[in-house]
Design a protein around this nucleic acid. Structure first.
Length: 893
RNA sequence: GCCGGGGUGGCGGAAUUGGUAGACGCAACGGACUUAAAAUCCGUUGGAGCUACGCUCCGUGCGGGUUCGAGUCCCGCCCUCGGCACCA
């Protein structure tokens, strides 16, 4: 053993030993409990960053801990390898996306291996290989057959920078998720969709089963995103109004061959229908177009040209405004009266039909009834346009009269409200009325219970070339024909021309032209590719059986390993990836591949790695290496230190993992990452604290170096010797530490407090080192036990140094798969206890008592203590509270 | 506005079921070793006060409450981070 700690040297050596002995390769073994530890796979952008290192250090520590505790641990890694940067690089370098991607993968794999993560590299996958993406295609064909995949013409979100369409989730707030400053455009395209709507209820309801295993905020975000609202649709008739409208409706009748023309609204508050003061339809509602068309041509005495003109102008203006602008914060509600009326089916009241900016097409039916007394938006609108406000729900604790003017709408939807002014329904509670009135609407065929979701079907078509080709053929005779499964994969051509304004795949005639599998006539392949979120929706199932050529994975093998026991990754995937992958799991279940509903038992969302930003007036953002003594190294101006933010290339506040490993070694970097903050919190990079981690490892190295020879030679077992008080104290500390760490890592996943415990144990060993009697076998045994336990418990954090020290302590086996130290409760118990004593709840002293003291004896010991007696003085003891073996509180007056 | 997380020393953070607040580390200061430096080791380090080698008081965002006892529980606020936001 070298006297000094040279991290890079031992790290290389140990990594080689592990690889040669294949210690991290995991295979199905029914006799052993299994644990699937998964970290989110990276996009191969070029180099590993600190965020990856943190994510994977957490997963690796947990994996190691589980392995040492007898679990068969599956810990794989792969590459989310399709995506746009590869195409951009191909265009820029006039090369190919696969070349760029595989070079990056090689670089990043080498970087990860240098950190020494315990992956079973035999299971590595890259989603851009035909061996992988053929199964994307296979899934699509199965979904197509089951009606879960369909094509429709849709207005899609289009990003001009990506030159492709985006899913709704990727275009939140009207901007591209990859280009935060690029507003999405709307384009009309025929697209493939996955029928998420069929699973919307399950996606929402099954979140309850994840309670406790997933962070609450992720569950909340998903619930918001899915956005279920239960309500009813109700038809308001346009018939029987008379005059011009009657002619309009009759005109509709001949066109639609319908006996009645209705405006169908969606409401969650059918109970408030007696309070409706008008109907409001979205400016895009088909009724508006029909009405304008009719009214423009109509020649009737009561035709109101001013209303028609106003309506036309308003509708045109609204349609020219994007949805985002229309509902942007602070936008005032605006509307116009259409001049039409509809009949409230519950009370026969004639209501004017308006159109307004805040009623949106695409949700519900695009039409509402406005109930100002019990909805804030409707209140604001009706107040502005002077529409009647009728109270129909009475708040349980209001003193207002039933016909008192409404100052603030009452919107609660629970038993706290009772119906008033609602005919036969008056007196019912809100929930009762909702149920009864929905039933009434259904019975009368003018309405139905209806559940709406905010979540939409998943648009999966992308007009990109570096993605999975959609395995479908468009035939003039047979329509859309799936590629026969024995012809999969449909491979991406290697010779695509990226130097084009159009779509490289569509311009590749060798790819496009194909014969129809059904009729044999000339046909065209689909030239879109799949959203890359498809790849990551099921990748971790492929890890369990990565080389299967018959199926995506063998269901029997998956039954052993999955679901994932622990998933670790960034919060940024809370809705996108983590909803898609839950959806995919349910689809796989319905395809018979697996039998469970949810793919991930426990989810940890780790915090970001942050660093203060620095900026120079002339040279813009500065990397920490470009700031010397607070000044820009290029021009000497004072660098402006900005706020601490997530490390990012654009703000240059990054630290390169390779450089840190060169300086300190991988173990130090890992130790720092796990010690500086609990995993779910943001972590600020701190050079001094990194040095502290390095200093600690050196400290461990020195004490092991001092004793490793003698420890290896010590063959004593505990029963054979007497222990001094100091030795017993160290043993106690050793066993207490084992207990603490097992809880910190195994139960709480608080790696930071685990490190603190190890540091305390190390400090205790140094203390003992000062007092040790080398000739005393008891002392030597206790030291050996402490050192070996310490080194073992370091293994999840810093595996290389642990492995090296383990060997130095005389062991030939691998510490990374050795058994976790066993905690002995007897040995962890203290000989004597220091019991804090309070008088009236205030700290007033301590007494030292035997560990096995009972409550009465403890009480007597406290009351007999001179110092305590003096403090109580003349006061009368009212009562004494004894918390067994922890505390005594004396209440004195 | 709604939902969720958080607010503890100079800093990162600890306190697991209501029971010694500030573990562990960073920074800082003092000392030892050294020709010197680095490294290492030892000590001090929440605030205020005192008749200072010990003791008293205050102290976990603010104001109340429950309790023998509250960083922890309850009520009402403030601030902050994140998500959602005319979704009928």
């Amino acid at each position: 053993m070298n006297e000094k700690y040279f991290p890079t040297e031992i790290e290389e050596r140990q990594q080689q030993r592990w690889a040669e002995a294949k210690v991290f390769e995991a295979n199905v073994d029914e006799a052993k409990p299994h644990f699937y530890c998964l970290e989110m796979l990276p996009y191969p952008s070029g180099r590993i960053h600190m965020g990856h290192v943190r994510n994977y250090s957490i997963g690796d520590a947990l994996s190691a801990y589980k392995r040492m505790n007898g679990f068969n641990v599956l810990h794989p890694m792969g590459w989310d390898a399709f995506g746009m940067p590869a195409e951009n690089a191909a265009i820029k370098n006039n090369s190919r996306p696969d070349t760029w991607t595989f070079e990056n993968i090689d670089t990043m794999r080498a970087q990860l291996q240098r950190v020494g993560f315990s992956y079973d590299w035999r299971r590595e996958i890259a989603s851009c290989t035909p061996e992988y993406y053929r199964w994307n295609q296979w899934f699509f064909i199965q979904m197509f057959k089951k009606g879960l995949l369909y094509r429709k013409n849709a207005t899609v979100n289009w990003c001009v920078k990506c030159n492709t369409s985006l899913a709704n989730e990727q275009a939140e707030g009207g901007f591209c998720w990859r280009h935060e400053d690029t507003p999405v455009e709307l384009r009309e395209l025929e697209q493939w969709f996955i029928r998420v709507s069929k699973y919307a209820d399950q996606l929402l309801d099954d979140l309850d089963t994840l309670e406790g295993g997933w962070p609450e905020r992720v569950l909340t975000m998903q619930r918001n995103w899915i956005g279920r609202s239960r309500g009813a649709e109700v038809d308001f008739s346009l018939k029987g109004i008379g005059g011009l409208q009657n002619a309009f409706v009759l005109g509709q009748m001949s066109i639609e061959e319908k006996w009645q023309v209705d405006v169908r609204i969606f409401t969650t508050r059918i109970d408030t229908i007696f309070g409706a003061s008008c109907m409001i339809v979205a400016p895009e509602h088909p009724l508006i177009d029909k009405w304008l068309e009719f009214a423009t041509k109509a020649e009737w005495p009561e035709k109101d040209q001013a209303t028609i003109d106003k309506l036309k102008a308003f509708v045109e203006k609204q349609r020219a405004t994007s949805k985002e602008d229309r509902i942007a914060e602070g936008t005032e509600k605006e509307g116009v009266n259409t001049g039409l009326f509809a009949i409230n089916p519950f009370n026969g009241v004639k209501l004017p039909i308006w159109t307004a900016n805040f009623v949106l097409t695409g949700y519900g039916t695009g039409a509402i009834m406005a109930v100002p007394a019990h909805d804030e938006r409707d209140f604001e609108f009706c107040k502005k346009y002077d529409l009647p406000i009728v109270r129909v729900i009475k708040n349980a604790d209001t003193t207002d009269a039933d016909d008192a003017p409404v100052e603030v709408p009452f919107t609660a939807k629970d038993e706290s409200g009772t119906l008033i002014n609602s005919g036969e329904w008056s007196g019912k509670t809100v929930p009762e009325a909702i149920a009864a009135m929905t039933a009434k609407a259904e019975a009368g065929s003018f309405g139905t219970a209806q559940t709406n979701f905010k979540i939409r079907d998943w648009g999966v078509s992308r007009q990109r070339a570096w993605g999975t080709p959609l395995p479908f053929i468009h035939c003039a005779t047979c329509g859309i024909v799936p590629v026969p499964e024995d012809q999969l994969p449909v491979e991406l051509p290697k010779d695509l021309n990226f130097n084009t304004q159009g779509a490289p795949l569509a311009e590749h005639t060798g790819f496009v032209n194909v014969n129809c599998p059904t009729c044999g006539n000339a046909a065209r392949r689909d030239t879109d590719t799949m959203d890359t979120f498809v790849d990551s929706s099921w990748y971790y199932f492929r890890y369990v059986d990565p080389h299967n050529t018959e199926l995506p994975f063998d269901p029997k093998v998956a039954a052993y390993w999955t679901p994932v026991d622990q998933y670790i990754g960034g919060i940024e995937h809370a809705v996108l990836h983590l909803i898609y992958t839950r959806l995919w799991t349910k689809i796989q279940r319905d395809l018979g591949l697996i039998t469970f509903d949810e793919p991930v038992k426990k989810l940890l969302t780790q915090g970001m790695v942050c660093l203060a930003t620095a900026r120079c007036e002339e040279h813009d953002w500065l990397n920490p290496t470009e700031v010397l003594d607070g000044k820009c190294k290029f021009c000497g101006r004072t660098a402006q230190i900005g706020r601490t933010e997530k490390m990012s290339k654009s703000k240059k506040n990054t630290i390169d993992p390779d450089e840190m490993i060169n300086t300190f070694g991988a173990d130090t970097v890992r130790l720092f990452m796990l010690f500086a903050a609990p995993p779910e919190k943001d972590l600020e990079w701190d050079d001094s604290a990194v040095e502290g981690a390095s200093r600690y490892l050196n400290r461990v190295w020195r004490i092991v170096h001092k004793w490793h020879q003698k420890s290896a030679e010590c063959g004593v077992r505990s029963a054979e010797c007497e222990f001094s008080a100091d030795a017993r104290a160290l043993r106690r500390k050793t066993h207490q530490t084992i207990q603490r760490i097992s809880n910190d890592i195994g139960q709480r996943m608080n790696f930071n407090t685990g490190v603190a415990a190890l540091m305390e144990l190390t400090n205790a060993i140094y203390d003992f080192d000062k007092k040790i009697d080398e000739s005393n076998v008891g002392d030597m045994f206790v030291l050996k036990e402490a050192l070996e336990s310490l080194v073992k418990m370091l293994a999840p954090y810093t595996p290389h140094i642990a492995e090296e020290l383990w060997a130095a302590l005389g062991h030939n086996d691998f510490i990374v798969i050795a058994s976790w130290p066993v905690f002995d409760a007897e040995l962890a118990k203290a000989d004597e206890l220091e019991i804090p004593v309070q008088i009236n709840g205030k700290m007033s002293g301590r007494v030292i008592v035997a560990a096995e003291i009972d409550d009465e004896a403890l009480k007597q010991a406290v009351l007999g203590d001179d110092k305590i007696k003096a403090k109580i003085g003349e006061r009368q003891i009212v009562k004494t509270i004894v918390v067994p073996k922890r505390l005594v509180n004396i209440v004195a007056k």
